[in-house]
């Protein structure tokens, strides 16, 4: 299952909630959630730990828009909107953690 998260993990619990409820799968960070994919973020350790259970992707145009494209955590893959489409197509189902 693809989990789409769009909120900053520093102001909203959805990233944490997804990690608590789900065991495995793929996570795509979009909109304000892209911060969770960056080095130096207070949640960095949590994201690194999650990489053991999930494949984590981040939407590059959203990272670039926020000036954070130069600090993606190693192991997190970057995708464009085409990559976003591919992820939805490749997974059997998807859930947006709104």
């Amino acid at each position: 299952m693809l989990h789409i998260i769009n909120k900053s993990p520093l102001s909203n619990s959805s990233f944490n909630d997804c990690l608590r409820v789900m065991d495995k799968g793929e996570i795509l960070l979009i909109e304000d959630a892209v911060i969770a994919a960056t080095k130096g973020c207070a949640l960095e350790a949590k994201t690194r730990e999650a990489l053991g259970r999930f494949k984590i992707h981040v939407l590059m145009p959203d990272l670039e828009a926020r000036g954070m494209a130069d600090r993606v955590i190693d192991g997190v893959s970057t995708v464009d909107y085409g990559g976003f489409v591919d992820l939805v197509a490749a997974n059997k189902n998807c859930q947006s953690w709104l």
Binding site: V21, S96, W97
Partner: peptide
């Protein structure tokens, strides 16, 4: 439990969240 809920979500075809 959290994990049971997660497993149930995994089984779905359409997940609607608002």
């Amino acid at each position: 439990s959290s994990k049971e809920m997660g497993a149930l979500m995994d089984e779905q075809d359409v997940v609607l969240s608002f």
